[in-house]
Structure formats: C-alpha cells, structure tokens
C-alpha cells in the first residue's frame, strides 16, 4: 500500500499547526482583550471557513494564489515558483481553513484567564511579554491543547480545498483524504478501508487525548 499520502498529510498538519499557533496567539489575544469596534468584523472573518463550502474557499484560493492573482503574482516575481500546486500553497490554504479551529479556543482561553493575573504580574514588575509567557500562557494551556489538536485534526481531514489548490500531485500534494476519495470512487474498497479506518482510529485517539489531558489540567494553575 502506498503510504506517501499519509506522510504528506502528517507533514502538512504539523507545519500548519505551528503556523496556526504562531499567528493565532497574537490575534486571539487581541480579540480577547480589545475594545475596538473592528473586533466583531475580525471575529466574523475568522469564523468564515466554518460556514463556507470548501469548494468556494478552494476556488477563491485558486484565484488568489494563482500566478494571475494578487498574492500568487507577487510570489512568482519573488521566487519564480508558483504557490498553487505546491506544498507551500497547501500550507497557506490549510492555515486559512483551519484558522477558526485554532483561534476560537485560544480566544476563549485568554478571555477566561482575564486581566487580573496579568495586572498582578505587572504590579510585581513583569514586562508584558514576561507576563504573557509566565502567567497567561500556562493558564490558557487548555486552550492551547484544544487549538493544536483541532487544528491538526481538521487539516488532516480536509479535502475540498486541498484538492483545488494542490492539484493532487503524487508525492507533493496528494494527501490522505484525496487518496481515500480516489479509492472509494474507483471501487477499491479494501485499500480505502485501511486508510479510512486508520484515519478514524487516529482521529478518535487524538480527540480522546484532548479530553483526558484537559481534564487533568487544573483550570487555575500558575507555574512557579
């Protein structure tokens, strides 16, 4: 059995999660504490991938990232390579459609931490970054676990967007969900069962871990 698509999926999901946390943390932080009137607009934008059909998102990304699109053209000028039909293009697409799955848990975690512990830390002489790293992040640990796992699992399972943006190139952009779709369509059910059952079991174990871990993390624990 060809396991190539499995590795591409795992690599894609891992890279996507790292980017999601790096971009999602400051944005979720801002959303949790801002009083700006832009907040509602940004929240709506972040939630868009939840409601848009993947083909809509995939089609717009194909235009946006394509060599004739604003982002794609810039990239071609910069590097000589196209964004679409590449692994990097898949990462960008994955980050976009998994965005709410990372930002929303982080935002509610930061909101439940509240301002008080941070203000206390500031009174004790901690810089804002210090206060974030030592006080807020550990308190929001549950949010991070949820964001990482959901972002990872959602990227692994996505199908419509990566199909459009990736072009299904074996060894480059052919991910496990597309491989399964192909096998079901071509009636090779035994192959499809292996991959599907594997994905199902993996997703279940991952989600189970989240719930177990989250139960073990006390809600208010500040690391010394």
């Amino acid at each position: 059995m060809d396991l190539g698509p499995v590795w591409i999926s795992l690599k894609l999901a891992s890279v996507t999660v790292v980017v999601l946390i790096l971009i999602g943390t400051p944005l979720a932080w801002w959303l949790a504490f801002t009083r700006s009137r832009w907040r509602a607009i940004v929240e709506a934008l972040v939630a868009l991938p939840l409601v848009l059909p993947p083909t809509v998102l995939g089609f717009y990304l194909l235009i946006l990232l394509g060599p004739a699109g604003p982002v794609g053209r810039f990239w071609v000028q910069l590097t000589g390579d196209t964004l679409t039909f590449s692994f990097l293009g898949l990462v960008i697409a994955s980050v976009l459609y998994s965005f709410p799955f990372a930002v929303q848990p982080l935002q509610s975690a930061f909101e439940s931490v509240g301002r008080a512990p941070l203000e206390a830390a500031a009174t004790l002489g901690a810089s804002p970054i210090d206060a974030f790293v030592r006080v807020a992040s550990p308190l929001a640990l549950r949010g991070y676990v949820t964001a990482i796992v959901l972002g990872f699992a959602h990227t692994l399972g996505e199908f419509g967007v990566v199909l459009m943006v990736g072009g299904n190139i074996p060894g480059v952009t052919k991910v496990v969900s597309i491989a399964i779709y192909e096998q079901v369509e071509t009636l090779t059910y035994s192959q499809a069962h292996y991959l599907s059952a594997g994905l199902l079991a993996f997703s279940f174990v991952v989600l189970l871990l989240v719930y177990v871990i989250n139960r073990r993390i006390p809600i208010n624990r500040i690391q010394a």
Binding site: F59, G66, G72, L163, M164, G167
Partner: peptide
Amino acid sequence: RLVYGTNVAQAYAMVATGNA
C-alpha cells in the same frame, strides 16, 4: 507537470484561473 482535477470541470477551473 500534470495537475489533476477530480473531474474535467476542476481541470477547466485550473486553466481558467491561470494556474495551469
């Protein structure tokens, strides 16, 4: 250098959007 659409409509979209 081949990119694959699920069906011929997706292959069309890849060309129409200037990606292929």
